[in-house]
Design a protein around this nucleic acid. Structure first.
Lengths: 211, 211
DNA sequence: GTCTATACTGAGATAGAC
DNA sequence: GTCTATCTCAGTATAGAC
């Protein structure tokens, strides 16, 4: 009878542990998501651990059972974003050329930001930036993404889809910078343009220029 | 004899006052310049009033004889930058076309930043941004500059020097965004490019695009 | 007006009960 | 593991002596 097995002490114990682990993992995910929202809305400095705890609906002290510091928590958010970005890059339509892939990925990042995501790179000289550079997982993810992008850029330049007179590093950094373009925030605040049009303008301004 | 006039009590008193005023004004200028440096290097949040006082070489309390708050002090820095920008715009070579003026001004802002100036716009959602929007002088200066730029953009679009399919507001915001382009900081940190070349790349990437 | 010393606040992090 | 309560510290701003 299954009853015996269900009431078996060791099995019940194991089930309880698995359940608790799931609870713990779920809560941690909720923390990361709440932090992501606040980070996108208010930025790193303006976001306090009190705010996060309130947003999740738990006590501030409990946050520190999951993450050792505010910096580590923010790093988790950024690592998750980088992982999703790498997945997005891997899943670009197979028949796309390198140049089309880059355009496609830039469009994807704008759509993410419009949907409430945090920009990929923190503002220069911000407290967050220096904190992130100390986090190995973050730096590794960023490096991996940059490798893939650098490869695409090289191919696109060789194919004449990107200007070859610009150093690849410059193109890479510009790509990151455009992904965080504050023009998106300004225009959204203005509110006269619909989102699709805005994204097309941003992508076009990056690759085709203003002239 | 001039001696009598020099030793005249009221004249001597007036001279002392003028001297004290100059001292005061000079100190205030030193404060603004020190703040500008720290703002450019570390950003608004990371810069404390202690840092500023130490940089100037005066007591922290004395800062508050000149500026009522940290925000007001930062606003002074930004207002001064905007004033210099408007002057730069007014003094573009007379024979330049609207498009050439815009290019020229963008190049000027990059050179300013390379020389240690703070970028024109604070990071989105930063504490500084919201503080500045409450300062009337700052907002007025920014509005005046935007008016002039908007006029130039309209003319350049009419002449075919700028794409006319992009909304003028979008071009204006993009111009501001490029003036603060973090690519400049990244590349400078990398250090493989000389400054002149970097500026040309940045200007070209803005107007001509990456493609 | 400038200095030293200090009040006050907000925020990150920790301790101890349950 | 989570909660409440508290510690610690940095940072803005002010008070009072000179």
């Amino acid at each position: 009878m299954p009853v015996t097995e269900l009431s078996d002490p060791t099995t019940a114990e194991a089930a309880r542990i698995r359940f608790r682990d799931r609870q713990f993992a779920a809560r941690e995910q909720a923390i990361v998501e709440a932090t992501h929202r606040l980070l996108a809305q208010h930025g790193y400095d303006a976001m306090s651990m009190d705010d996060i705890a309130a947003e999740v609906g738990i006590a501030k002290g409990s946050l520190y059972r999951h993450f050792p510091s505010k910096e580590a928590l923010a790093a988790s958010v950024m690592v998750e974003l980088l992982e999703r970005s790498r997945t997005a890059l891997r899943t670009t339509p197979a028949h796309f050329s390198p140049g089309q892939r880059l355009r496609w990925l830039l469009r994807w990042t704008f759509e993410q930001r419009l949907a409430g995501s945090v920009p990929h790179l923190p503002a220069t000289n911000s407290a967050l930036q220096t904190a992130l550079l100390a986090h190995k997982v973050y730096v590794d993810q960023l490096f991996a993404l940059s490798e893939s992008l650098g490869e695409l850029i090289g191919q696109a330049q060789a194919l004449g889809e990107l200007r070859a007179d610009l150093p690849p590093t410059f193109v890479l950094y510009s790509f990151y910078a455009r992904a965080c373009d504050p023009t998106l925030d300004f225009m959204r605040a203005g509110g006269t343009l619909n989102d699709d049009q805005l994204v097309e303008y941003l992508v076009s301004a990056c690759f085709d220029g203003l002239k």
